[in-house]
Amino acid sequence: MEREKLFWTALMLLGGLFLAGRAAMVGNGRVYVQAETIAETDAGPVVHHRGVPPSQRSEANVSLSWPRTIGLWVAAFCTLGIMSFVLGDNPFYKLMESIFVGVSAAYLMVAGFWDELVQNLFKSIVPGLMRNSFLPGLEEGLQPDLTYLAPLLMSIMMLWRLAPKGAWIARWPLAFFIGATAGFRLVSYLESDFVQQINNTILPLIVYTADESFDVWGSLRNSLVVVGVLLGLVYFFFSVPHRGVVGGLARGGVWLLMITFGASFGYTVMGRIALLADRLQFLFDDWLWLIDPTMQRMGM
């Protein structure tokens, strides 16, 4: 155990020395911004900063951004922290996980507040106040929509769940929530996932090409799709015992589903690999400047 600790400490020290040396010599992990004056006011100009590639660092109005540079290093350590879980559960990973939980929960709350509560609820109930504060673009003379008092009341009832007594009060808004979801999903699923999928499966089994010759591959493809969907549906149809002809067809459905699950598995793994490649590119390109696939530092 002691040797293991020593090994990791030495490795971390070497890694830290490499990073410090590289940052001092190459200047990697720096973010540059370009200042742009978007308006002149009595209090002075309103300046926005836009991130630019490091190759543009000598251009006019471009300067090093310390907050974004620190951010880039923080992001790199966050990436490494999460990746460290590959070696097993460790305090570095747990720290990053805790930060992730806190930041993501609060971010969703903030987004919900500004996008829904302000833009939808408060705008409808107190349009005048919103016009004078957060939504100056709101048209003048907009009358309050008092029907929005209902969701306001339901919101208060929902938050009642946090009170020590009377948690049943929160069932009313919850029922609204459940009812709305059920009503909306019932129609949308039947329309897009049931009728539309059946519609897309009704394909010509004999396909001709543009020059009116028989298209073998097209016909085979369509036939396989139609037969495959039917086999899959037979497998999911449990009202009839899976014996005899139905059993044989259901067996074909099992084969089709196995191929589908295999394909979905391969596809999912490759999706995750693409995400991993993106993180590695961030580490090696944006942070360490070891590679430059997007030519961000050309001529430096």
């Binding site: 019932l186 999928q197 495959g228 549906l233 089709l256 589903l257 191929i259 589908t260 394909a263």
Partner: peptide, 25 residues
């Protein structure tokens, strides 16, 4: 595979899910 077998399998699953959602709703 993606255009034929996976398409057919996913379609059968999707139809099943739609019926399940409709009945649960």
């Amino acid at each position: 595979i993606m255009g034929v077998f996976n398409l057919a399998g996913m379609r059968a699953i999707t139809i099943g899910i739609a019926l399940g959602v409709a009945s649960t709703s």
